[in-house]
Simulated scan of single mutants.
Amino acid sequence: MAKLYFNYAAMNAGKSTALLQASFNYRERGMRTIEFTAKLDNRTEEGVIASRIGLRRHAHLFDSATNLFDVVKQETQDTKAACVFLDEAQFLSAEQVRQLSQIVDRLNIPVICYGLRTDFRGDLFEGSASLFALADEIRELKTICKCGRKATMNLRIDPQGNAVRVGEKIDIGGNDKYVPLCRKHFFDALEKD
């Protein structure tokens, strides 16, 4: 029976690496996979899921107008897919998460999503909140804070390394803009003058 999975973590926990490895495992066994990544994530080549350790794979792009159910239904008319993988799941809308659940329930294809839990203010992303509500299985991938504890928060920093407290919810970046921290160090950084 197919399920909807949500794998979440702070920045730099290896979410894209885990996605690419899992997708490779299916394909190595001769099974077809379909991958998606957010169009607004422009850190690498458009339409590519890329990990910090160098793994890469072309993927379908999604934005707020993409009907994921329709894309997968069309893609699987002639050849069934064994699994759908979605990177940057935090950028999904609530409606798109419902579409993913329809892929699972109506097309009987497992969907495995990877994304951030919270933004730089500690607030849930819409896609993540919806996945917490609808996913059949939720898994936390772990990374560490500078103190060695589990990092659960994403601190946005300016070019000088100072905490950013205000701004747009979405500001695409990597190590140049975000630092994974434990809750204590996250709030310490926000309270610092």
Results as ranks from 00 to 15, higher is better:
Arg32Leu: 13
Lys73His: 12
Arg52Cys: 03
Ala50Gln: 08
Asp63Trp: 08
Glu75Pro: 01
Arg43Cys: 11
Ala81Arg: 00
Ile53Cys: 00
Ser64Glu: 15
Cys83Asn: 06
His58Asp: 13
Phe69Lys: 08
Phe24Trp: 10
Arg56Pro: 00
Thr37Asp: 02
Ala22Asn: 13
Leu68Ala: 01
Gly47His: 05
Arg57Asn: 05
Cys83Trp: 06
Thr37Phe: 05
Asp63Ala: 11
Val72Pro: 07
Val48Asn: 03
Ala65Ser: 14
Ala50Leu: 03
Leu61Ile: 10
Leu20Asp: 02
Leu19Thr: 05
Leu55Asn: 09
Gly47Ala: 11
Tyr26Ile: 02
Leu40Asp: 05
Arg56Met: 03
His58Lys: 14
Ala50Pro: 04
Phe62Cys: 08
Ser23His: 09
Phe24Tyr: 13
Val71Arg: 02
Ala22Arg: 04
Phe24Arg: 11
Thr76Phe: 03
Ile53Trp: 09
Thr66His: 06
Ala59Cys: 03
Lys73Ile: 00
Arg29Ser: 08
Arg27Gly: 10
Leu20Gln: 01
Phe85Gly: 14
Gly30Arg: 05
Ala59Asp: 01
Ala65Arg: 13
Leu61Lys: 11
Lys80Gly: 05
Val48Phe: 07
Val84Ala: 12
Asn25Val: 01
Asn25Gly: 07
Arg57Ala: 10
Arg32Cys: 08
Ala38Lys: 07
Ala81Val: 08
Ala38His: 04
Thr37Leu: 06
Val71Leu: 13
Phe62Ser: 02
Lys80Glu: 12
Gly30Trp: 00
Arg52Gly: 07
Asp78His: 12
Arg32Gln: 12
Ser64Leu: 07
Leu61Pro: 00
Thr37Arg: 00
Arg56Ala: 06
Gln74Asn: 13
Thr33His: 05
Glu45Phe: 06
Ala59Leu: 00
His60Phe: 14
Gly30Lys: 07
His60Asp: 07
Ser23Met: 04
Arg56Trp: 01
Leu86Thr: 08
Thr37Lys: 11
Thr79Met: 07
Val71His: 06
Ala81Met: 12
Lys73Met: 12
Gly30Thr: 08
Ile34Ala: 10
Arg29Lys: 14
Thr66Ile: 10
Phe85Ala: 08
Thr79Ile: 14
Thr76Arg: 05
Thr37Ser: 05
Phe85Cys: 06
Ala81Asp: 09
Cys83Leu: 02
Ala65Pro: 06
Arg57Met: 01
Thr66Arg: 00
Arg56Val: 01
Asn67Val: 03
Leu61Asp: 02
Leu61Tyr: 11
Cys83Phe: 03
Asp78Ser: 15
Ala38Trp: 06
